[in-house]
Structure formats: structure tokens, C-alpha cells
């Protein structure tokens, strides 16, 4: 039984059957509830692979991941899907919203998956989340009509819809200009402080990383350093 919100023990990921490519080498760490963590490292260091394993999108070759006292490898496809829906929010570099839906509908999708047709309360929650990320005026616009920054903020609102305790973000500001990046970061920080959501952000942006609580640096699939930032 894990004591921390996230506990990772000896995590190994190997790609390939004949030619094996070991991307992660026996990683172990713990992340507490409400932490704001940055994962940094050069390209190919295994950051995204690590995040995918943590997000239960991929399976580890060896090792254990405990989230909310649940061993991820114990879950089958149905349980894993439900677990992701209830415990994990995702924000990706390429926003990954559904272009067939409006901003508000995209925010509600995680709720639709779990509960089906939305209630008035859920619609109000989606509206409030869009207001929280500063998009109250574009709620009924199709995603294709929004700017890159707006899309990323919709993705953030979507990640928060199901009140997931953990939010995983892979280069959430990678495609945005400096001003929008700053806005998005501040938003993430506000949410972290207001809702107590645990953030794990993969980023190349040193400025963003420096503003987090903790920086874990991965190099060649191993943790090179794990520093808590003194404020």
C-alpha cells in the first residue's frame, strides 16, 4: 500500500521486440498531493514516456506505479479507462481537442464518458471552468474557430472537468508565445493552489520549470536530479 498520492518503484520501459531500446531505467519516486512538479530533461531522455506510463496510457515493462493507493498494472482495460477518467486529467502539447465539438462540449466530454447526458449542474460547471480559464465568451464556438492559446485553455478546463486529483501536462505551452505561456502557467498555478490539484508538467521551458515546487531532471531514462525549489 502506497503512502503518497503517487508512488513509483523501479519503473522500467523497454521498446522493441528484437532490437530492445531501454527508455526508462529503474525510476523510483514519490509525489505528494498538491505538489506542482516539473519534469525536465533533454529530448529523448524519456520524459514523455514517463508521463504516458504515469497517465496509464502505456504499460511499464517492469516496476510498479501506485496512484491513489491503486496499483495500475492490476487494472484491466475497462477498469483502466474508468481510472483514467476519474483520477487523471491530461493537457497535451497539441491540445488534442475534438474539432467536431464546441469549446463547452469539449470541456464536458470527460463527464459524458462517465455519466452520459449532462445535467444542468454539469453544464454550469463546464461554463464556470471556461470562465476560470478566461473563455466565457467563446463557450459555444467550435474548436476550429479558436486561437492556439484559447485551445490550450479549453484543454485545461477539460482536464479539470471531472475534478481529477492529478493533472498531467506534456509541454502544455510548447506551441504558445511567451505572453500566453505566462498566462497559462499562472492559470495552472492558481488551480493548483485553489483546488489542491497535483500537477506534473513535462517542459523544456526553464522559466516555467523554475516556478514549480519541484524539478525532476531525467537524463537517458534515469533521474539525474530531484530538487525541491526553495521559495
Amino acid at each position: 500500500m502506497a503512502k503518497s498520492l503517487i508512488e513509483i518503484n523501479n519503473l522500467v520501459k523497454v521498446y522493441g521486440q528484437e532490437v530492445k531500446n531501454k527508455v526508462l531505467h529503474s525510476i523510483s519516486l514519490e509525489i505528494e498531493k498538491g505538489e506542482f512538479v516539473a519534469i525536465v530533461g533533454p529530448s529523448g531522455s524519456g520524459k514523455s514516456t514517463f508521463l504516458n506510463l504515469l497517465g496509464a496510457l502505456d504499460q511499464a515493462t517492469e516496476g510498479e506505479i501506485w496512484i491513489n493507493n491503486q496499483l495500475i498494472s492490476d487494472l484491466d482495460d475497462l477498469e483502466l479507462a474508468k481510472f483514467r477518467n476519474q483520477n487523471l486529467g491530461f493537457v497535451f502539447q497539441f491540445h488534442h481537442l475534438l474539432p467536431e465539438f464546441t469549446a463547452k462540449e469539449n470541456v464536458m466530454i470527460p463527464d459524458w464518458i462517465e455519466y452520459g447526458a449532462p445535467t444542468v449542474d454539469k453544464k454550469e460547471r463546464a461554463q464556470k471552468l471556461l470562465e476560470l480559464v478566461g473563455l466565457s465568451d467563446v463557450t459555444d464556438k467550435l474548436i476550429t474557430k479558436l486561437s492556439g492559446g484559447q485551445k490550450q485553455r479549453v484543454a485545461l478546463a477539460r482536464a479539470l472537468m471531472n475534478k481529477s486529483p492529478i493533472l498531467l501536462a506534456d509541454e502544455p505551452t510548447g506551441n504558445l508565445d511567451t505572453a500566453t505561456t505566462e498566462k497559462i502557467y499562472n492559470l495552472l498555478r492558481d488551480i493548483n493552489q485553489q483546488l489542491g490539484t497535483t500537477f506534473i508538467i513535462v517542459t523544456h521551458n526553464q522559466d516555467i520549470a523554475a516556478k514549480t515546487d519541484r524539478i525532476i531532471r531525467l537524463v537517458d531514462g534515469q533521474i539525474e536530479s530531484d530538487k525541491v525549489i526553495e521559495k
Binding site: 479507462a81 483514467r84 488534442h96 481537442l97 464518458i113 477539460r158
Partner: peptide, 16 residues
Amino acid sequence: SRQIGILKAMGTNRRR
């Protein structure tokens, strides 16, 4: 395929 991947990441299982 992109939309399907996103839906799966957000918790839609294979059957659905």
C-alpha cells in the same frame, strides 16, 4: 484516429 486516441486517453474503453 486522433479523436479516438483522445477519447481513449480521457477514459473511453475499447468496447465503447
